[in-house]
Amino acid sequence: MSRKKSVKAIKKADIILIAILAGVLSGFALLSAGRQMPAEGKSAAQVEITLEGETRLYPLDQDTQFTLTTSSGGENTVVIKDGEVRVTEADCPDRICVTMGAISRTGQTIVCMPHQLVIRIKGKDQEIDGVAQ
């Protein structure tokens, strides 16, 4: 047996570190919340769907429903209804996209990492907003 070296489970520095991490994350959260705004004049707002690097646009004010299929056969069902977008069904392992619920504000996103899918609401003020590609 070797000598016992004391391994501290938790030190004062840990608490400070965790507090800093929490602070930085809250800052990020505020920042991304600040970017979102009600999609005013919803006629101008568009739903930008990026699937495996390819982007398509749909109007937010036209109710529709369709299923996206990835090159590997994965499926996500997207529903645009009453100015809201949601993923209602998906066969990805984690189904984060489904639990993210509906989005309706400019800058909000739904992401399905396994299927390389990003759904985002773009407003007409996109350029001014500066959420540049």
């Binding site: 991304s32 992401v111 990492m113 990003v118 590609q133």
Partner: peptide, 23 residues
């Protein structure tokens, strides 16, 4: 790594929630 893979920087918006859960 998801940003280039998904071709969208929008994924960054997930960081606060997933990051807090990770901590």
């Amino acid at each position: 790594v998801a940003v280039p893979l998904l071709g969208s920087e929008a994924v960054l918006a997930l960081l606060p929630v997933l990051g807090a859960l990770a901590v």
